[in-house]
Structures are given as structure tokens and as C-alpha cells.
Design a protein around this nucleic acid. Structure first.
Lengths: 276, 276
DNA sequence: GGCAAAATGGAATGTTTATTCCACTACTCT
DNA sequence: AGAGTAGTGGAATAAACATTCCATTTTGCC
């Protein structure tokens, strides 16, 4: 008998809740078990759903789900929901005051930074949708899909962008290679006609990347580019250049727009190749 | 005159909503502006809050917030909330809607893909703000700031995340090293007590990364983790684990939430180090 | 400085949602 | 097999909530 009384305290954290679910799962009636196992897997839904929605998702009557909440130790659904919602509202204290438009608090908390970067991410994605024309993107995708091998180059900040593309291409079976040092392929004939070079560089532009793009282009190989400024010399050597603008937070930029764009591009290239 | 009539359609996606906010910000009265600017920064709260809670957070009366929703084009708060909640309840509309959409337009345009990925990015960023608590993030930032050296490991899809962190740390003068193969540092004593290991792995989890985290933790070195599921074994060996969920497009995920989070983390770590 | 138009916040209203109640069903134990 | 007990779902009730209305205040303009 490990349940001396029916007076259970309500779980106070998500982990307690999960423990409780596992603990009581055995000695629960059928319907309650359904609730428990679904709920365990979809905890996050509670925060944004009503009892009826939950009950429907589980496949039981609302009153049953209600009884389930109580069997777990809560007074009702609302109390359980509060627990799941509370972690969402953690950020609130920072902004709780009525002076919400006073955005000049120089206190640097990590949470605040995250909120700022998330905001910058939203802006970058918006700008991305507005500035990149889909026909240019289509031309690039088609050009890359027809290539024998896609060579990817990007250094420093751009490296994580191309390494992501490299991973995607590999996973999808598209012949591609990521070049860690531009010098390695320059002049060695690794990039042949029929190939395509996709070069990524952000201001201040990498000389190495620019030189490689120029040399490759001069040898008659198609070059596509991705950068963050129309002033990038890449526009001279590349057949098409994509420009994305990343919003910054205290001088730092995340790579939301660039990774989103290149991910979409990679998926599209793979889809085009499979079609032919 | 870009506002020909007061009959605005309700935004149907997060990006439309953000655009609308930017668009109408200027010609809004003071209180409405407060609503707009707070809401823009804390979109994620809407899904789990009531009008009164939102109004209080902004510092206005509930009726004002109500009017704000209508000024943006919604019929009321509930409609706006539905939009923000829809991303959580993905499991229901996703299968039906997405499959229908896909079969309807057999034409896979790259531009369409980009729009999908951008929207998924918005959702991922919202979810990020929802699921990561700022105190956990703070503890991790502090832990990493105190480390002698920060070791970064992440393979396959996670590699581009850690390589970005590595670049940021290098640029900001924080001692850090990116490990390309987990095996290289395992058992070689490269990771010493006083160091910190930051491990990133997404489902299906990399054995190599998991083993390294476990071994490192067993030797008394602090391990922090970043993954996309609570079921990740990393939670057992790491002192703290961050969980981010990325929205997917036809089975593919971009890395918006993960890179945004790690960028914020890296900047914060650097700031904390400079303070001491 | 006074008038009109717009904006604001509190209180009233109608709707949705949680919660409880109870009649009914399906077990279990003898 | 039959009485008793636990389980279930629909319908009734109560609470929370979104939304609207209106009196009051503020703002912009002459």
C-alpha cells in the first residue's frame, strides 16, 4: 500500500507531474490510463487547450479528463493547466511594469538577450520573405540541381551555414562537398566545368572566399553566392547572388535568415533532382 | 494612403501578424502603441494568457487591449489567440491539412518552400521563448562563464550549431574548442576538471556525442546539453539540458531556434566573463 | 482657452469553459 | 447468476472569461 490516503498533494513541477503519472499509471481504470498516457506524451498541449479539447484528443468524455486531473492530485484542470502555463510566463517579471515601452534597461540577463535575439530572428525572417524573389531562388535551385557536384564554401561566420547545407545534401543524397579552406581547391582542378560553386560570405568579406569565387568563375564554372550586402564583390563573379539582411542585437547577428534560406534551397535542389 | 478602409483582414500567419504590427505602429494612439510594442516582443505569451493578464502586463485596461486586437484586424482577442495557439495544436491540422496542401499543388516552387520555412522559423522562435526558462539559461551561462575552457561537441545536424558557437567564442576571446570527432578527446584527458562540455544532439541522437557526455560527466566535469526532446539520454549525464523544438516543413527542420538560443548563450557567456 | 473628436478605463453583458452531479453501465466477488 | 462496487458519460451548474457600452478624460485644432 503506497497510497495511504486519497489526499495527494498537487505536483509542483513538471517532473513531479511526470513521476506521479508513472507512479499511478498501474492502478488506474482504463479511461484514466488513456488520459495518463496521452497526457504524458503531449504535456505541452495542456497549456493551450481546454478540457474538452484534451478529452477529445484522448478520446474520452470531458468529465473523465476532469477526474483524471484530480486522480493525479490537482484540484481540477485549471490547477494542472496553471502548472504547465507557469513556465511560459517566466519571462514576464522583467516586463511586468506598466512602463513597457521603456525598452532601455541596460541590465543584461540571459533571458532578456534571448528575447532580443528571438525578436531579431523574427525581423530577419520577415525581411527574408520580402527581399528574396522566388524566381531568382528558382533559377539558383535549378542551376544547382543540374550540377554534377555542388561545392560549398564559406568561412568564419558563414561556415556554419555551409556546413548545414553540406549535411542536408549528404542526407538527401545530393553530391556536394564542403570546403574548409578555399586554398585547398583553388587551382587543383577539383572544381570542374559542370560543377557549381555556392559561396557564402558576410561583411567583412573573406578574401579567400572572394578569390575562390572569382577564379572559379573565370574558369567557366557557374558560381552562385549568398551574402548580406549588395556591395559584396561576389556580385561580380557570381551568376546570381542572394542577399539576406540579419537583424542584430548589440552588434551580434544570429543566422536565422541565412540558414532558413539555405535550408529551403537545399530541400528544393534535392526535390528537383529527384524529379529528373 | 495605404489604409483605404478600416476593414482589415485578420492576419493568418505569424509573419503577417508581425508585418501588420510594424505597419500600423505609427498611426496608433499611445496605449495601443504600448500594446503593439509589448506584444511584438512577447507574442508567445498570448497563447497562454487571458486578456486581462496581457493588459496587465502591458499596463493598460483590458478593454484597451481588446481594441488593440481589433485595430490589428482580428475580431477580438480570441481570434488572435487562436492564431498563436495553432502552432501547438499542430498534431491535429498538420496531417490533414499538410497532406492536402501537398497533393493539391504538385508544383513545388522554391519560393513556396522558402515561405514555408520562414513561417516554420517564426513558429520555432515562438516556441523557443515558450519553452526555455530564463533562470535555467542563466545557470548555464554562468556555469560556462566560469569554465577554464568550453568544449563544444555536436555531430551531423548539430555540427553547424556548435561551429557557430565556436566562431562566436573565438571572435569574443572566450577559450573554447570545437570537437569534430568525439573520439578524439575521449580518454585523452583533453577535458579537465574546471572545464565545461556543451553537447548538442538532436533525434536520432548521436551515440558518439552521448558517450562523450556520459564519460565526461563521470569524470566530474560539468556537462550542459542542448537537444530537441526530453527523451534524450543527455538529461542523465548533463547538469542542465535545454530543449528546443523546431517546426518542420515536409519533414525537414531548419535550425532557427537552436542557433538563436546558442547565439544568445554565447554572447551572454562572453558578457559574464568580461564582468569578472 | 474653448470646442470637437479621439481615446481611455471601469463596469455591465453575454459567451465560453470548468466543474459537479447523477443516472446508467460494466465489472467483481461470492 | 446476482448483488454490490467501481467506472463512465451526458447533462446541469457555477465560474471565468471575452467583449461591448458608456461616462469621463485627454488630445488636437481653431
Amino acid at each position: 500500500m503506497n497510497k495511504p490516503a486519497e489526499v495527494l498533494k498537487a505536483p509542483e513541477s513538471v517532473s513531479e507531474l511526470l513521476e506521479r503519472l508513472d507512479d499511478r499509471l498501474e492502478d488506474m481504470p482504463k479511461r484514466l490510463k488513456q488520459c495518463a498516457s496521452f497526457t504524458r506524451r503531449h504535456l505541452h498541449l495542456i497549456a493551450v487547450s481546454t478540457v474538452s479539447e484534451m478529452a477529445q484528443a484522448v478520446g474520452v468524455a470531458p468529465s473523465v479528463y476532469m477526474r483524471f486531473c484530480q486522480a493525479v492530485g490537482f484540484s481540477g484542470y485549471s490547477e494542472m493547466q496553471d502548472l504547465l502555463r507557469s513556465k511560459f510566463t517566466d519571462f514576464r517579471p522583467t516586463y511586468d511594469t506598466r512602463l513597457a515601452n521603456l525598452s532601455e534597461e541596460r541590465e543584461l540577463s540571459t533571458g532578456r538577450l534571448l528575447a532580443d535575439f528571438a525578436e531579431a530572428g523574427h525581423k530577419s525572417l520577415l525581411s527574408l520573405s520580402n527581399t528574396v524573389t522566388s524566381d531568382r531562388l528558382d533559377r539558383i535551385a535549378r542551376g544547382m540541381a543540374e550540377a554534377r557536384v555542388i561545392h560549398l564554401v564559406g568561412l568564419r561566420r558563414a561556415f556554419s551555414v555551409v556546413s548545414n547545407m553540406g549535411y542536408l545534401f549528404e542526407k538527401m543524397g545530393v553530391p556536394a562537398s564542403v570546403h574548409f579552406k578555399a586554398g585547398m581547391i583553388e587551382g587543383h582542378g577539383a572544381v570542374l566545368p559542370g560543377d557549381v560553386l555556392f559561396a557564402v560570405t558576410f561583411a567583412p568579406f573573406s578574401d579567400e572566399t572572394l578569390r575562390l569565387a572569382k577564379a572559379t568563375s573565370a574558369r567557366g564554372v557557374t558560381v552562385f553566392g549568398l551574402t548580406d550586402s549588395g556591395a559584396c564583390p561576389l556580385v561580380e563573379s557570381a551568376r546570381e547572388v542572394l542577399i539576406v539582411r540579419e537583424d542584430e542585437v548589440i552588434g551580434f547577428r544570429a543566422l536565422n535568415a541565412a540558414t532558413t534560406l539555405t535550408t529551403a534551397l537545399a530541400v528544393s535542389v534535392s526535390a528537383l533532382r529527384q524529379r529528373s
